[in-house]
Design a protein around this nucleic acid. Structure first.
Lengths: 223, 223
DNA sequence: TTTTATAGTGTATATTCTACACTTTGAATA
DNA sequence: TATTCAAAGTGTAGAATATACACTATAAAA
């Protein structure tokens, strides 16, 4: 049995040097045929986080992803059928070519598709607002949560890491300064491995030492 | 008519050099006679923010206060009567001696009282968790939102401002460095007035130039 | 062997952060 | 009116961090 509130998910991935968001094409009124953030009613006996996981799985086939609550929206006019409270979450997934395929659908939606976050079609409900808030939050949280690393595979190059930072911050960064700073933090483990399958000099691979990361930022407050 | 979700308010003020939170003593089951964050069901035709304003007014007699959404809680076990989703907000009020009196009550609560935030009694539901999350958020947001100023009267001394920062960050700061930094930001207007009613050298009064403050922080993201 | 595309690296300057202690002021009071 | 009291107000030197900036190294492909 459904409860009376929904969760909406801003599902983000990083692909081709760009931050992408997964959108679903609705197959139900209101906003039939519009693109929207994947979301649905939470079951009565279901924890919110489990509902988010379920929606994530239905849309991407992925499990065990990083997620965090964003904000709740309950405007009287946000839904044409009357107020429906929604709790927005964001989820960060590690995309690679095999995972890029979206799962083809529940009955209430036609398809899911990845879009560059700064270039999305018009969205249903107040979902554009939710997306914008999400991007703003990510920029802040990037400074103290391991957000960038959740978007990358376990082993990554410094250039990939920089591209993720640039994608979230929406600005370019200086390569040398970026590397210096990251390496000074001391939470990157340099591996004895390099990239494979590239037609040029292969870059060194790194891993995040999450314990050190968390320790580094647990008590870091500005001032 | 009531909707099926509530708002809970972390109402904060600054008094006697300390950050204080307003708690209400419940007069209803569950948790009758326990201290709790003031909160109540949102009316069906009421915006959430208006519900927060209403609760704030009922408890303090104050209007026009700064507020911000914090987080939503919908755990299946948070309320003994079954899941009740609550949207937590925080509100920052300018306390002074005249405003310290709390309004004596609606029928669902016996009294409201101010407590030091780091020394509250055991709280009903998951309200301690909400309060802790609030304090953590405030520490982060202090760096880019005019939180400290919402807790102070329009005209304030630098020492008062420092005490607010210290109260929120829960640590002491160096006086000279604090002043240097604040004055360098350039969003404080030095007034031609000083404190009155003190038995020692009166301190200069300052005002916040909110436009400059917002401009200063609108695009400030770490990195 | 040359080309190509990206990896990888250092330095000088400016800015910000930190630690730290004494003098000034104004009201109260003796 | 001189003294006491309590807080206001102030500067500097050294450390750490941030910024701007351009070339060489490497590996695969042609």
């Amino acid at each position: 049995m459904y409860s009376n509130f929904t969760v909406d998910c801003v599902i983000l991935g990083f692909h081709e040097g760009e931050l992408k968001v997964l959108l679903a094409e609705r197959n139900e009124y209101p906003f039939k045929d519009w693109w929207a953030l994947p979301g649905f009613f939470v079951d009565n006996d279901e924890e919110m986080e489990d509902a988010v996981k379920r929606i994530l799985y239905e849309n991407t086939g992925l499990k065990d992803v990083f997620m965090d609550q964003l904000h709740s929206f309950a405007g009287l006019k946000r839904h044409p059928k009357g107020r429906i409270l929604t709790v927005a979450y964001y989820a960060l997934v590690q995309l690679d070519n095999t995972k890029l395929k979206t799962k083809p659908v529940t009955n209430y939606m036609k398809q899911a598709k990845w879009f560059p976050v700064r270039n999305v079609p018009e969205l249903a409900f107040d979902h554009k607002q939710i997306l914008d808030l999400c991007l703003e939050r990510l920029q802040r949280r990037l400074a103290y949560k391991p957000i960038a690393f959740e978007l990358l595979p376990e082993k990554f190059t410094l250039t990939q890491l920089q591209l993720v930072y640039e994608g979230i911050l929406n600005k370019t960064l200086d390569k040398r300064n970026f590397r210096k700073k990251m390496q000074n933090y001391g939470f990157l483990k340099e591996l004895d491995e390099v990239q494979t399958g590239v037609a040029y000099r292969a870059a060194r691979l790194y891993k995040l030492d999450k314990r050190k990361f968390l320790k580094h930022f647990q008590n870091t407050v500005a001032f």
